[in-house]
Amino acid sequence: MTFVGDGLNSPRKQGGGMDCSEDSLFPDKYHMRNTRVLNVSMANITGLPMEVLETARQELVNVVNLDGNLLIELPQDLHMLSELLTELVLSRNQISYVPTNISQYSKLAVLNLSCNLLCELPMELAGLQLLRELDISHNRFELLPRCIYELQSLGKLVANDNRIKDIDASDQGLGAMINLHTLILNNNDIQMVPPLLGNLTNIKQLELWGNTFRLPRHQVLAMGTLAVLAYLRTRIPA
């Protein structure tokens, strides 16, 4: 496994150990013990050493932040923390797929996959029944993945800046998400906002700016979420 970062000019030692410059990228066990956080952001890493993850497991780390690196997939041995993690941040990497074993991270409450290369999510992600916040913004989704509709605890879904064309507001789609209170869909390619979306009165923050639909008009959008939902309800066929 290759690690690239600022100041990492010396080669890896023989025998698999990390040299001192690599070691300096990662928080020590005392920091992890005190914070329960493994934070390796903006370090240009392409993976995580097993020994770092082993230490994180020993110190009961429940938050991993890998924002702004060069990951093309989830770190190979990250599953070592699957029973501990409540928050996982993988934003601003080059990840093109999420493995099916994501279902093992059953305690996750926050998952940030923004600014990657994703166009789909595995159905196994529906197993994250404690997930409250999901950020898939700035990816390549053309539809909201079906697995999202089964996330019964999800309260906040951020999906702006994708290529989403349609919204499923039926009882098999967003209508099934009874705890959803925030839905961010700005800057997609949504051509029509379904009137049924107006029935989702549990939504308190709805953002639809920057799409291609003509209705609701900008004047209605500017009036806020309650006005948009009320307008949509008037367009539901009798």
Rank of each mutant, 00 (worst) to 15 (best):
V110F: 14
L111A: 05
L111I: 05
L111W: 05
L111K: 02
N112L: 08
L113Y: 11
S114H: 07
C115H: 15
N116Y: 10
N116A: 07
L117N: 13
L118M: 07
L118T: 03
L118C: 07
C119T: 07
E120N: 13
E120F: 10
E120A: 14
L121W: 07
L121F: 07
P122R: 05
M123W: 08
E124N: 12
L125G: 04
L125H: 04
A126K: 11
A126Q: 12
G127W: 09
G127V: 09
G127T: 08
L128G: 06
Q129F: 06
Q129C: 11
L130D: 12
L130Q: 15
L130T: 11
L130E: 15
L131R: 03
L131T: 06
L131M: 05
E133T: 13
L134P: 06
D135I: 01
D135A: 03
I136P: 04
I136C: 03
H138Y: 15
N139Y: 11
N139G: 10
N139P: 13
N139T: 06
N139R: 09
R140S: 14
F141W: 10
F141R: 04
F141P: 09
E142M: 12
E142D: 11
L143M: 13
L143E: 15
L143S: 13
R146T: 14
C147L: 06
C147H: 06
C147E: 04
C147S: 14
I148T: 05
Y149T: 08
Y149I: 03
Y149N: 01
E150I: 01
L151W: 00
Q152T: 08
Q152F: 06
S153L: 01
L154N: 02
G155S: 09
V158Y: 10
V158H: 08
V158I: 15
A159Q: 03
A159E: 01
A159G: 07
N160K: 12
N160Y: 15
D161Y: 15
R163E: 15
I164N: 01
I164E: 01
I164D: 00
K165F: 07
K165V: 11
K165D: 03
I167D: 00
I167P: 00
I167K: 00
A169R: 04
S170R: 07
S170W: 07
D171Q: 15
Q172G: 15
Q172T: 13
Q172I: 13
G173S: 11
G173E: 10
L174E: 01
L174R: 01
G175L: 10
M177Y: 09
M177W: 09
M177A: 08
I178Y: 09
N179V: 01
N179G: 01
L180Q: 00
L180T: 00
H181R: 11
T182H: 04
T182M: 06
T182R: 02
T182K: 04
I184R: 02
I184D: 04
I184P: 00
N186E: 14
N188M: 03
N188C: 04
D189T: 03
D189I: 01
I190M: 00
I190E: 00
Q191L: 02
M192I: 04
M192W: 08
M192F: 13
P194W: 03
P194R: 02
P195K: 01
L197W: 05
L197C: 02
L197H: 03
G198D: 05
G198C: 07
L200D: 06
T201N: 10
T201G: 05
N202V: 05
K204N: 14
K204D: 10
Q205A: 09
Q205I: 12
